[in-house]
């Protein structure tokens, strides 16, 4: 059997002088899985992503991605070295760069000709053909979202972290982008952790759903189980 894509064990994080945000999170993810993390606001969802990305420095815990150690007590791999992509809430696009510039930003070590081609391919695969020379503020919310995803995926990360990726899209666009994202993830064989508070996102995206409460996973279960449960209690969650 193949080894897991990601294994996180006993992850602890607290702000300096503040109370614990993560207190012992452990889980593993098989290759290709889309794990959706749900939980009330303040439950530590975003911090979990940031610790896996390496943007926040977990005080304790071990993270292994695809057999490579990202961090433990002794080692720490800088975020820019990790084969992990991240889509931020609010996209964090570079306002001074065009769509092409945004997507090509991480490819700076790739020869120019190849970079141009890969950016063009990526543009096509997220359906943004013809918009490459626009600036972010000239795009709609859905288009911006796609640029944010495209610039991460063009680097072919092993794992994509997404923080409330669809929160500022309207209902129709949301459905459409969600479907596309799922297709892209499947096509590239990329695993993903998606943080959301939206039950519908979770419902449509997840292979498994994990529920975070007070810095701990209180439950992690196949999406099927939760779908059934939600069907019985439609007003909760």
């Amino acid at each position: 059997m193949s080894h897991p894509l990601l294994s996180v064990s006993d992850l602890h994080f607290a702000h300096t002088g503040g109370k614990a945000v993560l207190s012992g999170v452990s889980f593993t993810m098989p290759v290709n899985e889309v794990l959706v993390v749900v939980g009330a606001s303040g439950s530590g969802k975003t911090t979990l992503l940031r610790c896996i990305a390496g943007l926040d420095l977990a005080q304790r815990g071990r993270v292994v991605l695809d057999g490579a150690l990202l961090q433990d007590e002794a080692e720490f791999m800088a975020p820019e070295e990790r084969p992990v992509g991240m889509v931020f809430q609010g996209h964090a696009l570079f306002p001074h760069l065009t769509v092409k510039g945004n997507i090509g930003f991480g490819l700076y070590r790739v020869p120019k000709a190849e970079r141009v081609k890969r950016v063009a391919d990526e543009l096509a695969s997220v359906g943004l053909n013809g918009l490459g020379d626009r600036y972010p503020h000239q795009l709609s919310g859905g288009q911006q979202q796609r640029v944010a995803i495209a610039r991460s995926l063009v680097l072919r990360p092993r794992l994509l972290l997404m923080d409330e990726p669809f929160s500022d899209l309207d209902r129709r666009t949301r459905q459409q982008v969600r479907t596309e994202v799922l297709q892209i993830l499947r096509a590239h064989g990329t695993g993903a952790i998606v943080v959301t508070h939206d039950r519908e996102d979770a419902y449509h995206l997840a292979d498994r759903i994990a529920e975070l409460d007070q810095g701990r996973f209180v439950r992690i279960a196949p999406a099927e189980d939760l779908r059934k449960e939600w069907a019985q209690h439609p007003l909760q969650g």
């Binding site: 992509g85 570079f94 930003f105 991480g106």
Partner: peptide, 27 residues
């Protein structure tokens, strides 16, 4: 912060984050 972290997640080291993200945005 967001843009700089995004740049990090796209593999940009310190000098690249400084020259290609921080400086243009602080212009």
């Amino acid at each position: 912060r967001e843009q700089l972290e995004a740049a990090r997640m796209l593999g940009a080291r310190g000098s690249r984050r400084f020259l290609r993200v921080a400086v243009p945005l602080a212009r």
